[in-house]
Every structure is written in C-alpha cells, then in structure tokens.
Amino acid sequence: MRERVRVLVDGDCRAPLRVYNDYISFFGEVDPAAGTLRSVGEQIAGVALAFRGGRGSTVGSYVIYALKYYGREPSCMLVEEPEPIIITGCIMADIPLFQVRKGFLEEVGSKRAVLVHEKGRDYIELHFE
C-alpha cells in the first residue's frame, strides 16, 4: 500500500510499523534510556512510530533528542497533528517525521506491516505481512 504523506523531516526509513492511537507526552510517558513507551510498556526503538500527536511538556524535544543519544530512537515517526515540540525534537535528533491524513491510524490499526520511505519521496509504502 502506498500512502501520500507530508514530509516534515526527511530521511530514509525501513522499520516495522507500530500504531499508538493516542497523543504522547514524550516527557513522562517515554523512558529515553530504555526506549520504551511507559503507558503501554512497549519498545519504540527501531520502529516506525505512528501516533496522533504530541501533548504535555515542552521538555519533550529533549527526550526525543535523548532517545537518539542513547541509541533507542524510533526509525521514523508519523503524526496526524504536527506540533513544534515533536518537530524540533526530530530535527535535533535527525529522525524522519511525516504527517499522515486523519483516519490513517484507524485504518491501519493493529495490522502488522513494514514501513518504507526513501528520502526525497512524498509517500510511504506499507508492506503488510
């Protein structure tokens, strides 16, 4: 499946897709040294993390930067609603960031897929298992 996205921070990405259909406050809800999303207790290191958008603390940018510093960062991120805290964090950490259309997260849901994006393209590819 090919899906058009708005590229906010460009870069290559090939990683398993992990959809979290909620907003994330990186500060508080993410442990940067372990690379886990505390609310669900799951790894976000090395995945294509799709979520609705950011919330909470403005320290979030530093947490995204810290994920990269500890080598526990997602391979790329997809959001429905981009906002400065996440964009800045991704720019600093050089993590590709894409904006997806509303409804995309629900459509994909819990299906297992690998996401592929090549730098310079305005779309992502999803290879379902």
Partner: peptide, 26 residues
C-alpha cells in the same frame, strides 16, 4: 516560551502570543 503552563497563561490571560515551543526551540 517553553513551559506549557506559562504558554497557556501568556496567551489566555495576558493576550500575548506564543506557541508551545519545545525547550530547544525557545
């Protein structure tokens, strides 16, 4: 301004304008 609570006060109470800037952005 960073600090989400201060941002909300600046916009909502004082009528100034700031986005919720991430720490490094401010």
């Amino acid at each position: 301004w960073g600090e989400s609570s201060a941002v909300a006060v600046a916009n909502s109470v004082f009528g100034a304008s700031t986005n919720r800037e991430g720490g490094p952005l401010a």
